[in-house]
Amino acid sequence: MNKHWNKLLPLLAVCLLLITAGCGGKGSSPADNSQSAEGANGSTLKDVQVVLDWTPNTNHTGLYVAQQMGYYKEAGLNVEIITPGQGGADTMVASGKVPFGISYQESVTQARVQGVPLVSLAAVIQHNSSGFASPVDRNIKTPKDMEGKSYGAWGSPVEEAVMKSIMTTDGGDVSKVKSVNIGDADFFTAVKKGIDFAWIFYGWTGVEAELRGEPLNMMYVKDYSPNLDYYTPIIVTNEKQIQQDPELVKAFIAATAKGYEYAIANPDKAADILIKAVPDLDPELVKASQKWLSPKYQDDAKQWGMQKPEIWSGYADWMYKQGLLDAKLDASKAFTNDYLPAAGTQ
């Protein structure tokens, strides 16, 4: 999960002011910020940045495949993949500093309700692969077992709401959970320092636990409510980018889809591409994570990236009922499938 989600709201409020003011004045729109580069055939490529949500991992493999395999160049783009600054990916995209980024349905939902015009263009993973994980010796096998345990939190109100929601189904009482903010500490460090469980993406941290020989009990949040089977992560842009340069959006998403399609069909080769592009990553972890995650990118959807209105509205309704939103979401404006390539043409 994004540990900095709790910092998002004030930053997005500032971002909304920037958007209202025209994102920094004349000449500052994403469509105007690009420089030129040349492709192999001498054609001009458009420089484009995409900002990650966190450090590079297998959620991002399709981006690196599209970059390294030349899919972006074929689409006329020179794409640079960057890590987020202090403000985070959502703020950078919403303000127009970069045209594309990796985000989460929960943060885009919150942003839209606050008037920040982020738009989801594609679901990276079709089903929510996050959940509450704990070392098996903590004996947390059901939501009720969280009672009396210490939870490693990052400080977002959505955490307690989700815990309460799934614990209620099992007769548990969330007030009996001790939440401790662990900041940027990783899962394995936290559980050795008094934390019993935390919220993780299994495809990275869970797979790493397997490789370490540290078995986990895992409770996927989607298994306790269909409303919690939301899209995380997602690829986002902002409304202004779509209005000003829809062809850029279409080209970027088509090439990105091709990258994820390659990763679905060739998990081992895709892992090699990510390892080569980001040599600081643990090759064994990347290989194992990619093998686990590649089938889950598209899963039961008719094509990679597809999003359903009921997933957006269902999760937003749940957030509203939990008091996490000040107003109801217009789900039709929060996402679009319009820029995905026609099925079978990637």
Rank of each mutant, 00 (worst) to 15 (best):
K46E: 13
K46T: 15
V48Y: 11
Q49N: 14
Q49F: 09
L52S: 07
W54A: 14
T55M: 12
P56N: 01
P56W: 00
N57K: 04
N57M: 01
H60G: 00
H60M: 03
H60R: 02
T61N: 04
G62L: 11
G62M: 11
Y64K: 05
A66K: 12
Q67Y: 04
Q68V: 02
Q68S: 11
M69Y: 03
E74H: 05
G76V: 12
L77G: 07
V79N: 07
V79P: 07
I82C: 01
P84R: 06
P84Q: 08
D90A: 07
S95Q: 10
K97P: 00
S103L: 07
Y104W: 08
E106K: 07
V108R: 13
A111R: 08
R112E: 07
R112P: 03
G115L: 08
V116E: 00
L118S: 05
L118V: 07
L118R: 10
A122T: 09
I125W: 02
Q126H: 13
Q126A: 15
H127F: 05
N128S: 02
N128E: 09
G131D: 00
G131F: 00
S134I: 05
P135E: 08
D137A: 06
D137S: 12
R138Y: 05
P143D: 02
Y151M: 13
Y151D: 09
G152D: 12
A153N: 04
W154N: 08
P157A: 06
P157D: 04
V158W: 07
E159N: 01
E159K: 00
E160H: 09
M163S: 09
K164H: 12
T169C: 05
T169W: 07
